[in-house]
Simulated scan of single mutants.
Amino acid sequence: MTATVTQTAPREDMSTRVEEVLRQRFAIHCENAEVYGAEFAALWRATADHALGGKLVRPRLLLDIHRALVPTAGEDAMIGAVDIATHIELLHYAFLLHDDVIDGDLTRRKRPNLIGQLAAGTPGASEQDALHWARSSAILMGDLMLSAAIMGFARADVPAHTRGRLLDLVEQTILETVAGEHTDVALSHGIIASDVDTVLSMSVYKTATYSFSLPLRAAALLADSSTSAEKTLQAVGRHLGLAYQLQDDLLCIFGDHRTHGKDPFSDLREGKETAIIAFARSTSAWHDIEPRFGSADLSLQDATSMRDLLRECGAERFVIGLIGDQLDAVYALLSEAELAGEISSDAARSILVSTSRLEGRHA
């Protein structure tokens, strides 16, 4: 069953439409799940609770750019854009579920994630069994969210040629994101040698492709923009996404977890090969960092000491510089594209607003 978008909602608050459609979709799924048993229905309700209420970074980006590219778009076109934006959010949540399993995370958005909630809600089981149940449930729900996202693209009420190009785009996006995640795990276990270039390439595929290039390119396709404009937006998205990921890496180690809501120092406990760590490996400080890096039982005191070493060796400063480089590249690309007439000044301005939100981000 396909949920409809209320057509009387104000154009200025398109994210509200996305939230509304998400709620409608989850309500339908929760109702349909009842026939498969109380546990499965409860799993859908818990999933809905965790999936809703996010920042909607990706849908907002798509809708803002689409509106800037087609300021006179009719209601039907806006409904189509909202539909695609909604399914990009479902794709995002599918990746989050799988990522939490891979990383062993139990918290997100300042509270237990789906795995943490499910594991804590099985008092009759052993801790090991409860965690296995919770992680298995997250994998299965991630599969269902991925399926729902792809089917949403396939059923989108847009012209047939646009739908075909959107499906090609989402297929390539999933491929690149999985490739990036696969490399990330390989780096963390030493299967692939870690260096800054490899880590940055992995981050582009794992985060930038689906979080920024996908919504920007989807907006261009929905707006029937030129191929050159789409390519420019793809490049802009890669730089923005890399900046976003690098900031996430900084927040995990140097940020205030009370503000960003992530598990503090989880990257250090997991032995995650970020650009911070890749840089530190090339310094004399690595001798003191390496023995405790990747320790699952890393104490707060040891983690704080490692953080201080990473700061002293220049890793924090180095990654802050990388972020600045990515944002400078965005500004240059947008300036060139605007001068060449590839994108409008309104579209460039809209992306710059998104870029400004990244600078100095704390959550």
Rank of each mutant, 00 (worst) to 15 (best):
L298H: 04
G164E: 15
Q234G: 02
G124R: 10
E12T: 09
G164A: 13
V35A: 13
A38L: 00
R217L: 04
A3F: 05
A156Y: 12
S282D: 11
L43W: 14
F265A: 12
A315C: 10
L250N: 02
A340Q: 11
Y36I: 00
A243V: 13
I65Q: 01
E270C: 09
L327W: 09
A94Y: 10
V5G: 04
T183K: 06
H239G: 05
S203H: 11
E176P: 04
E12H: 05
I351N: 02
A48G: 08
H182D: 11
S15G: 03
P291Q: 04
I150T: 14
V70I: 08
S344L: 03
D157H: 14
V185R: 02
G121T: 06
M1D: 09
D64S: 13
D197H: 12
R292F: 03
S345N: 02
M141L: 14
S350H: 05
L166A: 03
E290K: 12
L131K: 01
A3T: 10
E230A: 14
E230L: 12
T86D: 05
D13P: 00
A179F: 00
D308W: 02
L140T: 04
H182Y: 07
A134F: 04
I139E: 06
R11A: 12
R349M: 09
I351D: 04
I191A: 14
W286A: 01
L216Q: 04
D99R: 01
R111N: 06
A77D: 13
A85P: 11
I28L: 15
D325W: 02
R111M: 09
A81G: 05
T183L: 09
D83F: 11
S188R: 12
T4I: 00
A81C: 07
R258H: 09
R349W: 12
Q245P: 07
T274K: 00
A154Y: 11
G180E: 06
Y36F: 15
L216T: 06
L251D: 03
L216R: 05
S299N: 11
M202H: 02
V21L: 15
R58A: 03
M151K: 15
D157M: 06
V199P: 00
Q7I: 09
G142V: 10
G341Q: 01
H66S: 04
A332D: 13
S147W: 00
L246K: 03
A337W: 06
D346H: 10
T209W: 01
L22N: 05
G53L: 09
G104P: 07
L214M: 08
D64M: 12
R23F: 02
L222D: 06
D267G: 06
I28T: 11
D129I: 15
E359N: 04
R108L: 05
A303R: 07
C30P: 00
E312T: 10
R281S: 02
D100N: 04
R25D: 11
L352V: 09
F293M: 02
T8N: 08
